[in-house]
C-alpha cells in the first residue's frame, strides 16, 4: 500500500490559511467556500463513480435532502440547527439505502437512468410541496449554526469553520484512498464476478458506499443551507448533478484529488469570464467530451503522468 499523500494535505492547509489572511474580500472568500462545497460533493461522486463504478446522476438530490431537512426543520419547527444536520444525514442515509437496494443491482445506462429519474423525482417534490418547501421561490430564514457557543453568522467565521471541516474531510478521503476498502471498490469496478468469487459481498459493499456518500452529501447540504440562509430547488436540479459529474471526470476519476481539482477549476473559471452563463453548457459539455475522449484519467491523471517522468511515486 502507498503512503498517504501528506504533501497534498499540507498544501491544502497552507493555502486555506494563507488565503484567509491575505484576502479580506468577502466575494473571493465566498468563491473559495463554494469551491469547497463543490469539492466535497464531487469527491463523493468520485468515490461512487471513479472507485466503485456506480454511475449516479442524482447526487444533487441527496445534497438537497440535507439542505431541505435543515431548512424545513429550522424554519417551520425551530429545531436546534445542529440536530437538523444529524436528522438530515439520517434521512439521506435511509433514502439512499431504500433507493439503492433495488437500483444498485442495475448497471451502466440502466443505473444512470434510474438515478437520473430519482434525482428528478426529488427535484419535483421540492418544487411541488409548496407549503413546506416554499416551492420554486425557495425557503428563507434558515437559522444559523452555532458551534461551541459561537454563532457562525458571517462570511469569515463560516470560512474558518468550513475550512476545518474541509480539511478534515480531505484527511478522511486520503485515508480512505489508501485503505483496503478503496482497493475493494476498485476491484468491484474492474470485475463484479471476480470480486464475488473472492468472497466480497458486492451488493452489500455497493449499498453501503452509496448510502454513506449520500449521507455525507446531506451533511454538506445542511451546511450549505446554514451558509446561504436561503435554498431553492434550482440548486439541487439535474444541472447540479451533471456539473458534479463533469467536475469529477475533469479532475480525474478514481483519483482522490480529482474531485477537488475539478471543483476548483469549474467553480473559479466561470467567475473569470463575464457572460459565462450563456456559454456555460457548451463549455461544460465540451470539457466533458474532451476528457472522456482523450484523457480518461482526467487532469490529475495528466499531472501524475507528467510527474511520473521525474519522480517515481
Amino acid at each position: 500500500m502507498k503512503k498517504t499523500n501528506k504533501l497534498y494535505l499540507i498544501f491544502l492547509i497552507v493555502f486555506l490559511s494563507v488565503f484567509y489572511f491575505l484576502v479580506e474580500n468577502q466575494f473571493y472568500r465566498s468563491i473559495v467556500i463554494y469551491v469547497m462545497f463543490n469539492a466535497i460533493n464531487a469527491s463523493l461522486l468520485n468515490i461512487l463513480f471513479g472507485y466503485a463504478g456506480i454511475i449516479s446522476l442524482g447526487q444533487a438530490a441527496f445534497f438537497g435532502i440535507g439542505a431541505y431537512t435543515t431548512g424545513i426543520l429550522t424554519v417551520h419547527f425551530g429545531i436546534n440547527p445542529f440536530l437538523t444536520i444529524l436528522i438530515g444525514a439520517f434521512i439521506s442515509f435511509v433514502v439512499a439505502y431504500i433507493v439503492g437496494f433495488p437500483t444498485l443491482k442495475l448497471h451502466g445506462h440502466y443505473l444512470a437512468m434510474a438515478t437520473l429519474g430519482f434525482g428528478m423525482i426529488v427535484y419535483i417534490l421540492f418544487n411541488e410541496f409548496t407549503d413546506i418547501t416554499g416551492g420554486p421561490s425557495g425557503l428563507v430564514g434558515i437559522a444559523k449554526l452555532s458551534i461551541f457557543g459561537i454563532l457562525i453568522d458571517d462570511e469569515s467565521k463560516f470560512y474558518i469553520f468550513f475550512s476545518v471541516i474541509f480539511v478534515g474531510f480531505s484527511i478522511l478521503l486520503e485515508l480512505f484512498d489508501k485503505s483496503f476498502y478503496s482497493y475493494k471498490l476498485k476491484f468491484i469496478k474492474e470485475s463484479e464476478s471476480a470480486s464475488k468469487s473472492f468472497g466480497i459481498n458486492v451488493s452489500k459493499v455497493k449499498l453501503i458506499v452509496f448510502a454513506t456518500t449520500s449521507m455525507f452529501s446531506a451533511v454538506v447540504g445542511s451546511l450549505f443551507a446554514f451558509y446561504s440562509g436561503f435554498i431553492s430547488p434550482v440548486s439541487f436540479s439535474l444541472k447540479y448533478s451533471i456539473d458534479l459529474f463533469v467536475m469529477a471526470t475533469l479532475g480525474g476519476l478514481g483519483s482522490i484529488t480529482g474531485g477537488t481539482l475539478g471543483a476548483a477549476l469549474l467553480t473559479v473559471f466561470p467567475e473569470l469570464i463575464s457572460n459565462f452563463e450563456d456559454y456555460e453548457m457548451i463549455i461544460y459539455g465540451s470539457l466533458l467530451a474532451i476528457i472522456v475522449m482523450f484523457f480518461p484519467q482526467g487532469i490529475s491523471g495528466l499531472i501524475k503522468k507528467m510527474l511520473g517522468k521525474y519522480v517515481r511515486s
Binding site: 446522476l57 451502466g108 445506462h109 471526470t249 453548457m281 459539455g285 466533458l288 467530451a289 472522456v292
Partner: peptide
C-alpha cells in the same frame, strides 16, 4: 454514456 451526456449538454447549450 458520459460522452452522450456531454453531447446532450453541448446541444442544449447551442
Amino acid at each position: 454514456i458520459a460522452i452522450t451526456i456531454a453531447l446532450a449538454v453541448i446541444m442544449r447549450g447551442i
